[in-house]
C-alpha cells in the first residue's frame, strides 16, 4: 500500500513538474522526452538470453528523433480546465485538464480518494518515466491488443472538463 502511494505521488509530482517546466519555458519541448538512451540495470538473475530456450529475434529499433515543437493543431483550445467532481464507488474523482498545442498535455487529480500529502517521496531509486493522459485515436489499425471494462467516474469528469476546452 505504501509503495502504491509512493508510486502514485511520484507520477503525479512528475506531472506537476512537467507543467512547471512548460510554464517556465512556454513552447519549448520537454527536455526529458529527448532522452533516448535507456539505462539498463542488471537484474539479479541469470542473463536473459542465456536461460531462454526460445530463439529471440533481434530487434532493430528506429533511431529516435527529437519531439517536434508544440503547434496548436489539436481540436481543443489551450488552457486549463476543471471537470466536475464525480462520485466513484471508492470516493470522488475530479480532474483538471491542461491543453497544450490543442491536445491534452496533462490531467491532474484535484479530488482523489487515494490522496495523501503527509508521505514524503523518496524517488531517487526510480527512473523518471513519462506519463500522459490517454486519448482516443482513430481505429485505423491492423488489429487490437487488450480488452476492457469501464471506469465511468473518470470518463464523466474528463468529458465535462473537455467540454469547456
Amino acid at each position: 500500500m505504501k509503495k502504491i502511494i509512493l508510486s502514485s505521488l511520484l507520477i503525479f509530482s512528475f506531472g506537476a513538474y512537467i507543467l512547471h517546466v512548460r510554464i517556465l519555458s512556454s513552447n519549448a519541448p520537454i527536455a526529458l522526452t529527448q532522452k533516448n538512451t535507456k539505462p539498463k540495470i542488471d537484474l539479479s538473475i541469470p542473463k536473459y538470453d542465456q536461460i531462454v530456450t526460445n530463439p529471440i529475434a533481434q530487434i532493430i529499433k528506429p533511431t529516435p528523433t527529437p519531439p517536434p515543437p508544440v503547434i496548436n493543431t489539436g481540436k481543443y483550445k489551450n488552457g486549463t480546465y476543471t471537470g466536475d467532481s464525480v462520485d466513484a464507488s471508492y470516493g470522488n474523482v475530479q480532474v483538471k485538464v491542461v491543453i497544450s498545442g490543442g491536445k491534452i498535455a496533462d490531467v491532474q487529480f484535484l479530488d482523489h480518494p487515494r490522496g495523501g500529502n503527509s508521505t514524503r517521496i523518496n524517488n531517487y531509486a526510480m527512473p523518471y518515466l513519462i506519463s500522459e493522459a490517454i486519448a482516443l485515436q482513430d481505429s485505423n489499425v491492423d488489429t487490437v491488443s487488450g480488452a476492457s471494462y469501464t471506469s465511468e467516474a473518470y470518463r464523466q469528469s474528463l468529458t465535462s472538463a473537455l467540454a469547456q476546452a
Binding site: Q137, V141, G146, T150, Y154
Partner: peptide, 23 residues
C-alpha cells in the same frame, strides 16, 4: 503492422495508442 492498444475503460473497440511493429 499497426497495433492499437484498447481503451481499458470501454467495452467498445476504442484505440488509445497506436504502435508500429514488424517482428
Amino acid at each position: 503492422w499497426c497495433i492499437g492498444i484498447q481503451n481499458p475503460f470501454s467495452q467498445k473497440k476504442e484505440i488509445i495508442k497506436k504502435i508500429y511493429v514488424s517482428d
